[in-house]
């Protein structure tokens, strides 16, 4: 397989120029532009926030807080970065606080939403969910700053420079966080990407 076949397609699916125009119109209190921006960012930012908080309602609530800030502060945006970087930066700061709160609540529950859903699904879905759950648990074990770098890079497809702007830290700090996150994830998920030839349950029982 050529190396390029293993690369993820870019997930930054909005047009930076169009986003900038919309944001400027929002700064002028253009409600239609706000609604377009809202609907454009809704799917991916909600998913990003869900990945941070593991709670749909919290993700929805935080996203509305983010877009309310966008409405109020659009005139402060100077265009030194992409509009998406600015909006993600707001989502990052608000999501981080909500994630800490959600983690405390999750610790008080006997079953996670994922585990409850797993009990009610057919086997093939359970297999896929198990893999995601496995990766999810490995990500959960990372310190928040490292996990967020991974989420921004692999879930939302941002570059190193963009992540440094979103998170508000130097590029070298992003690289260091990525380095430690990779090392930790490799320890926890040694077979991801190159599955080991594990014996089946029947083979083990023989």
């Amino acid at each position: 397989m050529p190396p390029s076949a293993m690369r993820a397609p870019s997930t930054r699916n909005s047009d930076p120029g169009e986003d900038l125009i919309l944001l400027r119109r929002v700064a002028e209190r253009d409600r239609e532009a706000f609604e377009r921006l809202y609907l454009e960012y809704h799917p991916r930012v909600i998913r990003f926030l869900y990945r941070l908080t593991r709670n749909t309602e919290t993700a929805e609530e935080v996203f509305n807080d983010v877009m309310f800030v966008v409405w109020q502060k659009a005139s402060d945006f100077r265009g030194h970065s992409r509009a998406s970087t600015w909006i993600l930066g707001i989502a990052y700061r608000k999501g981080l606080k909500a994630a800490a709160k959600a983690r405390r609540l999750r610790a008080q529950r006997p079953f996670s939403e994922l585990e409850l859903a797993t009990l009610q699904e057919p086997r093939s879905m359970v297999d896929r969910r198990e893999l995601r759950d496995w990766v999810g648990k490995a990500l959960d074990s990372l310190p928040d700053p490292q996990r967020i770098v991974i989420e921004l890079a692999y879930f939302l497809g941002h570059s190193c420079a963009e992540i440094s702007e979103i998170v508000g830290c130097p590029v070298n700090t992003v690289k260091t966080r990525m380095f430690h996150a990779r090392r930790r994830l490799r320890d926890l998920l040694p077979h991801l990407g190159a599955p080991a030839a594990s014996p089946s349950a029947a083979e083990i029982s023989e």
Partner: peptide
């Protein structure tokens, strides 16, 4: 690279969240 690609693919495999955008939009509006 194979490891990182596996990580990326698994993270993207999550189903779309069915959060109705119109309802949320009406709330923030």
């Amino acid at each position: 690279l194979s490891f990182l690609s596996g990580l990326s693919a698994t993270m993207h495999a999550e189903e779309a969240l069915l959060v109705p955008a119109e309802r949320s939009l009406a709330a923030v509006t």
